[in-house]
Design a protein around this nucleic acid. Sequence first.
DNA 1: GTCTATAATGCGATAGAC
DNA 2: GTCTATCGCATTATAGAC
Lengths: 201, 201
Amino acid sequence: MATTTATRGIYAKTPERRAEILDAALEVFADAGFRSGSLREIADKAGMSQAGLLHHFGSKKRLLAAVLEHRDEINMGFFDLNSRDGLAYMRGLLRLVAHNCSVPGLVEVYCQLSAEATSADHPAHDYFAARYVRIRKIMADSLRDVDAKGFLREGSDPDEVARDVLALSDGLQVQWLFAGKSFDMTRVLRRYLAEHITVEL
Amino acid sequence: MATTTATRGIYAKTPERRAEILDAALEVFADAGFRSGSLREIADKAGMSQAGLLHHFGSKKRLLAAVLEHRDEINMGFFDLNSRDGLAYMRGLLRLVAHNCSVPGLVEVYCQLSAEATSADHPAHDYFAARYVRIRKIMADSLRDVDAKGFLREGSDPDEVARDVLALSDGLQVQWLFAGKSFDMTRVLRRYLAEHITVEL
DNA sequence: GTCTATAATGCGATAGAC
DNA sequence: GTCTATCGCATTATAGAC
């Protein structure tokens, strides 16, 4: 891929271009999902031709993979990755949910993509399956840490609560999208967590 | 295919034909969603041509509407519609969830369709928006009845619990589909309800 | 009531000029 | 790095024969 360099001027625009395409793809996948969202529409939004777009990502599947990877990196920013403190993790989760409320398009992407990826042959199926396992584990471990510190309510099972919190988050997003973003997901989630964690979050 | 029969007797097969098509459509929409599922594939499954299929339903959108209507009627069967007893409703809900566990394809349909219908211009958007409002109201009313009979836990708000139960159900379905149907959704839901309802379900 | 044929559109991907 | 042009295929819907 030739790229950058020497003879050819100084404008290594590729990274910016890729970023623009990723933003456009996110928008389109949010509205139409992966299967029905078209490369042409993404290309239009990014201000280039469909062929030009494929020059950067090769295929529609690889574009999807890049979008998901990119979002994961950004979402990581809401958590203190060096900490194993359970309460800190839960606070990070609430920060992430609060942030999501300000970017409904992003909520729509995950809602839409995760649902269509339940089909076994969907390009993102394995990604989402692994993601759910990973998140449940991190959350359960966090709750075990909360328990070790004496802040988990008697009788609450970390694995069960982890599953419930994740399910509740997903389900709330659907209702939130249908109800015109008219309630506060953070509040609902915080109230639920208060039923299992005995310290203020 | 000429079909059966002599000259062409009395066979008003239309109702059966429509039912076959609805079953096929459900299967295809479950695998691919509405937008990506094709009439041709549905027609193939129903053993007829795509044009023959459209003779019965006119358009893809109308077929979708018929599928949703049909499922709603069937789901009604799990509830005692003449009763306003809150506990009876909750038991009906658990029966419905238990039944759903035996038809994963059906769970996939609602999961997939409800997600893509979050887009405001989706043909089923209004249907799902109204459905969420309706179900939340019925459930909250049921919980108020439970409360009136003294079986709601102190401090539990019927409207909040209704939203949570619905969100939990939706979210659990996604995890259930990704995890290879490997846990018991009924058990999880019953355990959650036990946190708010003080009598055995 | 079902079919074949086809219209009209849209898709992802590739080839090749610049 | 971006474009135009195009291939090959799939889609929804309609027209008209039987």
